[in-house]
Design a binder for these strands. Structure first.
Length: 873
RNA sequence: GGGUGCUUAGCUCAGCGGUAGAGCGCUGCCCUUACAAGGCAGAUGUCACUGGUUCGAACCCAGUAGCGCCCA
């Protein structure tokens, strides 16, 4: 810290020879926080710009997907802060009901051999809070390490007091609006987590099972049904056929005997049966299948639950006490022994639902749960996007949004867990039921519903509960609706849609004006990264090895809207190399006396005009790209401006000027200072640490309490096309000479005598000395005897005295290659221009362009040919 | 099964109607006092396949094949 202060106060370049992130990052981050750089004010005159964090699981740890997400959010917010907005990146975490409870239960079992029931609800929840405290510190320190510029004073947790109040408030409001109800329905049940799940928490995969066809009943009174879930037959209460299916018309209204149970079940006619599938007859298990439940309701069938919460068969009979999968094979054997199996298809690939937390096969199960009526909310959420109140980036993602939001079923929100927001419904001794709002007391003698709410129920309030809702806080007024939501496209259904529903419902206004859905992180094989498949790259390891800036840069430069990121450790190295290059470029600028003091020169030199023009174009491009969340392209533009234009050309071009000294050198020092000042600003949102460190060295701003975090974002100036054209000509000349030298095996350090002609015709008056220095061409001296002549362009040619024989073969090869390329170009353009249809139908501008290309090709050929002849001569 | 996207240089990806591009990798030369985590120069492609539209197709249309994702 004191070292750094010394560095900047002396304004000298005590920067190390290469960038060492560890020596910079933690120190910088602490200072930013201490100086309140990320704090947003509720009462400022500045326009608001707020993005709320997609809250990570408080007991989880950051993976690369989080790092990508945070990088993009942080970059957007930092840029807006620099643009003078009241910028807020609001942090927090969620309580992740199921997975957190799972983890703590497992730990209790492993370490103490007890279950949550042994502890009891209160003590168990107490334990989870302890667990939460530990892991909360881990995840926040990770966020600090990757440089999240969040307002820590506003950090929220879904289970904290304010947010719990918000949950209770909206529950009560929805309840009183008739939009929350309790009903017996078929829900997704996880027999391992022992709780209901919402549709979104079920993942379907195509699994290999078996399709077994079996016969119910005997003789004329028999019917064949097929199933992949044999065990459910114990709960069958009917067989259904299509009403028009003549094969079974005689059976409708009669009963067949259900094996093992002694029950006689009716054959019913139902239009929803597909007569084409299997035998055309289906078994009906209303308590264990949503379609069968619907059939059951239509025909007044009994619903028989045949297993308990763990998936163990409870139906009386030989299979009682077996797990559902054990029962499946036991039943198969028994049926086979009975001669009832008429066909078996194995493997039979079919979609099977799995719990997205533990991968256990989900059991559809009749159960009494709480639901949110979705229709009105879904319409609000869908219309908000249709109306353009919220804009989705990339736009293709809208389809996926509508596909979900327009086909939503009622949302099952109750969970049979202890960790979460307890449902604020209380039951009276005589079956009364009241919803208790915030600040209200349940009547004496009532007991509260034991279940808790789906975590996403509270996450859905996040964009406004975190700002103080339901209180009409200044923060809420200032920052709602938030500017944007940036999140992975995999949680569009869990989270984005639900925030849209609750936001529009509770606030009457969308929660965010834009949504940017970024891709997932994959490994080099295209697989989704995960800890279980062992292909994960730990972002914190990347930080330790290459620095947070390298991590952020690597992620941002690969973030293309609509496609996933392919991460590999090599990308981190590339990113680190860029940071190092920037470090050294700036170090050189400082050593050259670059300054940000005073006005820019009134009449800058050609190369200064050129770099200022390139800067202007870069600012324009980066702004346009970032406005569209085109991070990869913005980074590409910055990369090329920095590396190609500034480091490879501009700095090299300034060296001779600086060596010359005098006023031109002073002017250029000022321009170098400006260019680096602006470049560092442009890069700061993505690579905040290295840019801050360098910028403070460049400007000496630390002692004045300055920081790049709050420095003004660059404004694009005018482009200067003339300077760009001239410098391009100069670059072309330089490259041609270098090629020649390289082809001739002339060492870079070796000077060659040369005469340059036609520079003023090419508009490069006054650049001769610069060019000579750059490519080591000495003035022709006594006895100058050119051995080769390079016709660089129509105007410029260079005669070189290589003081000896030249490698004719190499030079000929070089020229012949150029000639061949030009000839190909001439052939192509000549053919086009000889095509009547092309001339009459193509736009004039295109025809003109082809004519120019043809002329250029002709000139190139003439020059190359002449040079080849000279070689022979 | 219904949607939706992808297939371009060895790898990762841009380009989406008018000269095929980038980064990395590769080849050669160079420790040129900012940087070898670097510099200079160079090589590299039947733009998946088959038809069609067009003066002109990597780009538009149709079909085929492979891969991916979402939803059931």
């Amino acid at each position: 810290m004191t070292d750094a202060a010394k560095k900047t106060t002396t304004r000298e370049t005590h920067l190390s020879k290469s960038y060492e992130p560890v020596s910079v990052e933690a120190r910088r981050y602490e200072k930013w926080v201490a100086d309140g750089r990320f704090k947003a004010a509720d009462d400022s005159d500045r326009d608001p710009y707020c993005i709320v964090i997609p809250p990570p699981n408080v007991t989880g740890q950051l993976h690369l997907g989080h790092a990508l997400n945070h990088t993009l959010i942080d970059a957007m917010v930092r840029r807006e802060r620099m643009r003078g907005k009241e910028a807020l990146f609001l942090p927090g975490t969620d309580h992740a009901g199921i997975s957190t409870q799972n983890v703590v239960e497992r730990q209790l079992a492993d370490k103490e051999g007890i279950s949550r029931h042994d502890l009891g609800r209160e003590a168990f929840v107490e334990r989870v809070w302890e667990w939460k405290a530990t892991y909360h510190d881990r995840i926040t320190s990770q966020m600090k390490k990757i440089g999240d510029g969040v307002d820590w004073d506003r950090e929220r947790f879904t289970l904290d007091e304010g947010l719990s109040h918000a949950v209770q408030t909206i529950f009560k409001r929805l309840h009183d609006d008739g939009m929350i109800y309790r009903a017996e329905r078929i829900i997704n049940w996880c027999p391992r987590c022992m709780t209901a799940l919402s549709d979104a928490e079920v993942e379907h995969s195509d699994d290999a099972g078996e399709l077994v066809s079996m016969r119910y009943g005997e003789g004329e009174n028999s019917i064949v049904v097929a199933t992949t879930r044999l065990e459910t037959m114990l709960g069958d209460t009917a067989v259904a056929v299509h009403p028009d299916d003549e094969r079974y018309a005689h059976l409708v209204g009669r009963t067949v005997e259900l094996p093992f149970t002694g029950r006689h079940i009716p054959v019913v006619a139902d239009e929803h049966v597909d007569p084409e599938f299997g035998s055309g007859a289906v078994k009906v298990t209303p308590a264990h299948d949503p379609n069968d439940f619907a059939i059951g309701e239509r025909h007044g069938l009994e619903s028989i639950l045949i297993m308990d919460e763990r998936g163990v068969i409870t139906a009386h009979g030989p299979f009682q006490g077996l797990d559902r999968f054990e029962a499946r094979s036991a039943i198969a054997s028994a049926l086979r022994a009975d001669g009832r199996i008429v066909a078996e298809k194995r493997p039979y690939i079919h979609a099977v639902g799995h719990c997205d937390r533990c991968d256990t096969t989900v059991e559809p199960r009749l159960s009494k749960q709480w639901f949110v009526k979705i229709e009105r909310l879904a319409k609000l959420a869908g219309d908000a996007v249709r109306n353009g109140d919220t804009k989705i980036y990339p736009p293709e993602m809208e389809k996926r949004y509508f596909q979900w939001v327009d086909n939503l079923l009622d949302w099952c929100i109750s969970r049979q867990l202890w960790w979460g927001h307890r449902i604020p419904i209380w039951y009276g001794p005589d079956g009364e039921q009241v919803c208790v709002g915030p600040g209200e007391e349940a009547p004496e003698g009532y007991t509260q519903d034991p279940d808790v709410l789906d975590t996403w129920f509270s996450s859905a309030l996040w964009p406004f509960s975190t700002l103080g809702w339901p209180a009409e806080t200044a923060a809420l007024k200032k920052f709602y609706p938030t500017a944007s939501l940036i999140t992975g496209q995999d949680i569009i259904f869990f989270w984005v849609v639900r925030m849209m529903m609750f936001g529009t419902y509770a606030m009457g206004e969308v929660p965010f004006k834009e949504v940017y859905l970024h891709g997932l992180i994959r490994d080099k094989e295209g697989k989704k990264m995960s800890k279980s498949s062992g292909n994960g790259i730990d972002p914190l390891e990347v930080v330790d090895t290459y620095g947070a800036d390298a991590l952020r840069y690597m992620l941002a430069r690969d973030a293309q809207p609509g496609s996933d990121n392919t991460a590999s450790i090599e990308l981190a190295e590339i990113a680190r190399n860029f940071c190092n290059k920037l470090w050294n470029g700036t170090r050189f600028a400082l050593m050259s006396g670059a300054t940000v003091e005073g006005d820019l020169p009134e009449s800058p030199s050609l190369i200064d005009r050129w770099i200022l023009s390139r800067l202007s174009r870069t600012v324009t491009a980066v702004d346009a790209l970032l406005d569209q969340y085109e991070f990869a392209k913005a980074m590409d533009a910055l990369y090329h401006f920095a590396w190609d234009d500034v480091f490879d050309w501009y700095l090299e071009l300034t060296k001779p000027v600086l060596a010359e000294g005098g006023r031109p050198a002073d002017d250029t020092r000022r321009v170098i200072g400006h260019v680096f000042d602006q470049l560092l600003r442009l890069l700061h949102p993505v690579i905040p640490f290295v840019t801050e460190e360098l910028w403070l060295s460049l400007t000496g701003g630390e002692e004045r309490g300055e920081s790049l975090t709050v420095a003004a974002w660059p404004a694009a100036g005018e482009a200067d096309a003339e300077s760009e054209r001239l410098v391009e000509a100069l670059q072309h000349l330089v490259v041609e000479v270098r090629r020649f030298r390289d082809g001739q095996g002339v060492k870079p350090s070796q000077s060659v005598a040369a005469a340059l002609t036609g520079l003023s015709d090419a508009g490069l008056d006054g650049q001769e000395r610069l060019i000579r220095t750059l490519v080591r061409l000495d003035e022709p001296g006594e006895g100058f005897a050119p051995t080769a002549e390079l016709a660089v362009s129509d105007q410029v040619s260079v005669a070189l005295d290589t003081s000896g024989t030249i490698d004719v073969a190499a030079e000929r090869a070089r020229l012949e290659k150029a000639l061949k390329a030009a000839q190909k170009e001439l052939d192509g353009t000549t053919k086009k221009l000889g095509n009547e249809a092309f001339l009459s139908k193509a736009p004039e501008a295109v025809v003109e362009k082809i004519r120019t290309r043809k002329a250029t090709a002709e000139a190139d050929i003439a020059r190359a040919t002449a040079q080849l002849q000279r070689l022979d001569g």
